[in-house]
Simulated assay, not measured.
Amino acid sequence: MRTYRLKMNLQYFSQEKTEKATPQKRQDSRNKGQVARSAEIPSAFMMIGVFLFMSFLGGWIIEGLQTMIRSNFVYITNWTLTEQNVDLMLKDNVWQAAVIAAPLMGISLVMGVIANYMQVGFLVSTDPLQAKLERINPLKGAKRIFSARTLVELLKSLIKITFISAVTFTVLWNKREEVMLISQKSIGDAISLVGSLIVQTGLAVGILLLFLALLDYVYQKYDFEKNIRMSKQDIKDEYKKSEGDPLIKSKIKEKQRALGMNRMIAEIPSADVVITNPTHFAVALKYDPNEMDKPTVVAKGMDYVALKIKEKAKEHDIITTENVQLARALYHQVEIGDGVPEDLFKAVAEILAYVYSIKGYPGGGN
């Protein structure tokens, strides 16, 4: 019973999401469009950009509106009210309004792009656009409506409305004397005052929203990091997926070593001599002066592999000679298929000369 409980506890803790997300997990989330971002930052940037533009070029906007209104009055007094004239006037008004609104829309677009790029960089993901049945699941929809995140969003909205109302009231209260006298001003001065109040209020609210948006971004970052946490089992599964199952990898390496050793052993019959130390190391050399510049190692091994090399050499009547220092040097310094280094030429030449004298010919090869 205790063993069962211990096993269940270990399984529970292995599934508990307590670990920071790995780079692979972060990249997968990013590919799905899941990133830490605040929707309030683009709104704040757009508001500040639009009202800054209006503060510098508000006169041009007002002049454009006045021109449009003035031209309408002129057209109405001079034109006959027909369907064609009304259509022409509306098209002209739409065009003039578009010219006036285009800079504001352009500023909004640029500021929105900048704000999003500052948060998440360049990101294009189609995953949020894909149709998923779980999004229309009533049960999951109800859970989202009554979740803690929804309550947090509601609280944020209430705080935002409260602060925006307070800032708007403060700006208007500071200008209350001018507002009270607006009825005594000319139409141009009244419009100028109203425009100034709108720009001041908009900038103040924009700066406030930017401050609240930065706080919201900190919260979104924290919430995002919490949501992408991984359990210890998740990390193990990810490692297996990316690197491969360790058991399978070891089997593959074992097969590769076996194939490599088989190919190496198959080359031993063409060797001229096997040099041993005598038990731990064995190195098989081949030399054909017509094809090679220097003797070449065709097989080498230690312990069990060395034993197999010596058995194969004995099977094919390959001469085996003992030279502890040379066997060790060849094993550690020369890879299979490489030639003998110059500093070992003399020792190897002496052994080959000995082998050739036994075989009864002065040249190399079989």
Rank of each mutant, 00 (worst) to 15 (best):
E243R: 09
V124R: 08
Q220N: 03
I336E: 06
K7Y: 15
D343N: 13
K346V: 13
D234F: 01
I145L: 12
V348I: 06
K251G: 02
Q233K: 11
D245Y: 00
V218C: 03
S165G: 09
V74H: 10
V167I: 09
M292E: 05
K251L: 09
M180Y: 08
S38W: 01
L133Y: 12
E311N: 09
V273Y: 07
K308A: 08
E311D: 13
Q66E: 14
N93R: 00
P278F: 02
S125V: 05
P289G: 14
P42F: 07
F281W: 03
K346L: 13
M180S: 12
N72H: 15
S29P: 08
G337S: 10
N290E: 12
D288L: 06
S186P: 01
G202R: 01
D223V: 02
F122T: 01
V218E: 11
E243L: 06
K249N: 09
N85M: 04
N116C: 03
N31W: 10
P278Q: 02
F169M: 13
L208C: 07
L151D: 04
Q325F: 11
V74L: 11
Q27K: 13
D87S: 13
V355K: 04
M230S: 03
F169L: 15
F345N: 10
I76F: 12
K251P: 06
V124T: 05
L88V: 13
M46K: 07
Q184C: 10
E63T: 15
E350I: 01
S196K: 11
R263P: 11
M118Q: 09
N116E: 00
G337C: 00
E342Q: 12
Y219E: 05
K240H: 06
K7E: 15
I358K: 04
V179R: 05
K160Q: 05
R135W: 07
E291K: 12
Y219W: 05
N262Q: 15
L210E: 01
T3G: 15
D234W: 02
I48E: 01
A204I: 13
I309K: 06
K160V: 02
I268M: 00
L214V: 14
A44C: 00
A258N: 10
L10A: 14
K255I: 14
Y75H: 13
